[in-house]
Amino acid sequence: MRRRVGLGAIQQQKLAAEKYKDKGTDLQESQLEQMTKQMEVFRVKLEEFAMKHKEDIRKNSQFRKQFQEMCAAIGVDPLATGKGFWSVLGMGDFYYELGVQVVEACLAANHKTGGLMELDELRRRLIAARGQSAVHQEITNEDILMAAKKLSIFGNGFVVHKLGKGKYIVQSIPGELSMEETNILTAASNTEQGFVTQKQLMRDLGWTEYRSKQSLDKVLGEGLCWIDMQANDEPSYWFPSLFPGRTAQNSTG
């Protein structure tokens, strides 16, 4: 067969391409329409769901956690919107309230903890602070994390640090914790009593003597830890926020 050449053939090809394009746009449009419809239905259903289970979400921590996970999966942040249909949930209020309480609890203990508090302790304090009337409003660590993370928009005065293995520590004094400091905290939180020494850092983190000393001096200089000069061989650096004896006696006495 002869190859098709010439103006006619080019025009024909062009025409075909245009037709394909038109069809493609059509398809896209109908798909978008369908998607929009689906989303609308989904939104209505979610709203219905939220309305129906409002009380459950507010009061049942397990339920709330699952609802949060669901929202996270579809990319919705119930906290980001105080207005709109999410406000019917009062989810925002729940976390705003919790956020304020987190700040209160942390600031009240700042002089004792040096501005660092373990998440578990924070939770205990919050539950105690919320009192009898809120007994049914159980709060989980996830709730506190959610509320505390929102507080970071106020600047670096309030930060949540992950110390590995599901351990978190909430920092309630201004100032960034450097990588070094976070590493030291992690090392300390892995000990029973919550302290580190220079040798321990050199051994566990592979740091040089100089680096260990510098970092420890910095942590001490910021008032995050206490130094003990009466230990056997070398000074040890203690974090009141990680010292188990502090809360053990509080709960009994």
Binding site: F195, W226, I227, D228, Q230, S236, W238, P240, G245, R246
Partner: peptide, 8 residues
């Protein structure tokens, strides 16, 4: 009183 650095 049980916190070792309390004595430094």
């Amino acid at each position: 009183y049980t916190f070792p650095p309390f004595f430094t």
